[in-house]
Nucleic acid binder design. Structure first.
Lengths: 163, 163
DNA sequence: GAAAGCCTCGTATAAATATGCAGGCTTGTG
DNA sequence: CACAAGCCTGCATATTTATACGAGGCTTTC
C-alpha cells in the first residue's frame, strides 16, 4: 500500500489514446530538441500538458525502440538495426592487429599471441585480388603481394578499415 | 589522494595498443554473445586476460559509438544513424492522430485541439493519388477520396504507418 | 454484476551508466 | 635532467535508466 493517487487510463476517450499521443510527442521532441535525459524530457512534456513520470518514459522508449546515443535519443528502425555490424575483415583487424609493417612487396602484420591464424583467415576470406597469399605463424602474418604498388594498395585498404 | 594502484598505460609495447585491442574484443563480444550490462562485459573480458573497470567500458562504448538496444549493444554506424527517423506522415500520425473513422468515401481524422492543420499538411505532402483533397478544422480532418475502395486503401496505409 | 484478465501508470528502489578527479605513463622541449 | 602536456585509466560517486509491485480502470465472460 504505497501509492495513493494512481492513473489508470485517465480521461481517455478511447483505449490507449493518451499513450499513443504522448509517444508521438516524444518522437517529435527528441527529433527536434536536444534532450539529454528522460527526466528532462519529462519536464518538456509538462509544457505540453502531459504529466508523466520518468518510469513511463523509460517504458515508452522501450516500446518505440528509442536508444540513447552520443547525439541524443534516436528511434532505431528495423533497417538501421541490421546495418549495425562491422564487416568481417574490419572487425578482425580491430580485434587482432597490433602493428602493420610494409616491406617491399610484403606486409607484416603483428597480433597478440595466437591472433595470427584467425586474422589471416579473415584476410583470406576477403579475397582481395592484390593479395597473392598469406602465411601465418602464431603472432605474425606475412601478406604477399605481386608488387610494392599492390602492397601499398592493400595497406591503404587495411588502414581505412581500421580508421 | 584516493586511488592507490593505478594503471597508466600498463605493459603496452606500443602506445594505445592495449586500448585498441580491448575495443576489438569488445566489438567481437557484443556481436556474438548476449551481453546485458557493461559490468557483465567487464567480467567476460576478464576471461581473455583483460582487466578493466566499468568506467573504461563506458568510455569505450562512447568512442565506438556503441548503443544499448533492447537486443543488446550495437555499434551505430554512420549509415544507421541517418536511417533513424520516421517518415513525415508516419510521425505526424503518431503525433496527432486520436481517431480514424471511415465513412463511405470519406475518412474522418480526429486530433487533439489544434492538431488538425499540421496533420492535414503532412497528409497533403504525401500526395497520395487516392486522395482527392482534405479539409481541416481545429481538431478534425476530412480526407476525401473518389470511392469507398480508395478510402479503404488510404485507411489501410495510415493504419500501417501507425502500427 | 462479480470475477478474471488486460492495460497503463505511479512509487520506490535497484541496476546501470557517466563523470570529476587524480595518478602513472610516455613524449617532447628547454 | 626537470618540467609540461597529453593519454589512458581507476576510484568514488553522481546521474540516469529499468523494474518490482500494486492501484485503478476497462472489457469480457459466465
Amino acid at each position: 500500500m504505497r501509492g495513493d493517487i494512481v492513473a489508470g487510463n485517465g480521461t481517455d476517450p478511447e483505449l490507449g489514446t493518451r499513450k499513443r499521443f504522448r509517444q508521438g510527442q516524444i518522437l517529435k521532441l527528441i527529433s527536434s530538441e536536444n534532450i539529454s535525459s528522460q527526466d528532462e524530457l519529462r519536464r518538456r512534456l509538462g509544457h505540453v500538458k502531459l504529466q508523466v513520470t520518468q518510469a513511463t518514459l523509460s517504458r515508452d522508449f522501450h516500446e518505440l525502440k528509442v536508444v540513447k546515443t552520443a547525439a541524443g535519443y534516436k528511434p532505431l528502425t528495423a533497417v538501421s538495426e541490421e546495418a549495425a555490424a562491422l564487416p568481417p575483415l574490419g572487425r578482425a583487424l580491430r580485434e587482432y592487429l597490433l602493428d602493420l609493417r610494409p616491406a617491399a612487396n610484403l606486409l607484416v602484420l603483428k597480433t597478440p599471441p595466437g591472433g595470427a591464424q584467425p586474422l589471416a583467415a579473415a584476410v583470406d576470406a576477403e579475397r582481395m585480388k592484390e593479395i597473392a597469399g598469406t602465411i601465418a605463424g602464431d603472432d605474425t602474418i606475412l601478406v604477399i603481394t605481386p608488387s610494392p604498388a599492390a602492397r601499398a594498395l592493400v595497406q591503404k585498404r587495411m588502414e581505412e578499415l581500421l580508421r
